[in-house]
Design a protein around this nucleic acid. Structure first.
Length: 103
DNA sequence: GCCATGGCTAGTA
DNA sequence: GCCATGGCTAGTA
């Protein structure tokens, strides 16, 4: 396992706590770690997710309810995983008032 | 050190 | 615009 700094570890640990059927946002994760403004950095960490299975990075979406990124090939897989967890799509977006995880 | 690179976003217009 | 990374040079020793 490659060396990881504390920011990376904190992001991954937090994401692990997001329950099935709920989502958080990049900005939300950043805030939860006491680093408002680091939303983009959160995305940076998630794209190098070392454990795609145990670390549910598909549950982190954009603040406006759009999915945001996932794989280089696109967002289809992310959408599918979320749908399987019972998340409803309002057109292309997720209703955060309903599905957002608030620790 | 410096600089480009993103799975981004609050706040104008 | 922000922010943590990662890759890559200067420029010391």
């Amino acid at each position: 396992m490659k060396n990881r700094n504390s920011f990376t570890i904190e992001v991954l640990d937090f994401v692990k706590t997001i329950p099935r059927g709920r989502v958080s946002t990049y900005a939300g994760v950043a805030r939860a770690l006491g680093r408002p403004g680091a939303a983009r950095a959160v995305g940076q960490v998630l794209k190098r997710n070392p454990e795609p299975v145990t670390i549910p990075c598909h549950r982190v979406v954009m603040s406006d309810g759009n999915l945001g990124g996932y794989t280089p090939s696109g967002t289809g897989k992310k959408r599918k995983l979320l749908a399987e967890e019972g998340i409803i799509f309002d057109g292309r977006k997720i209703d955060l008032h309903v599905f957002q995880f608030k620790p």
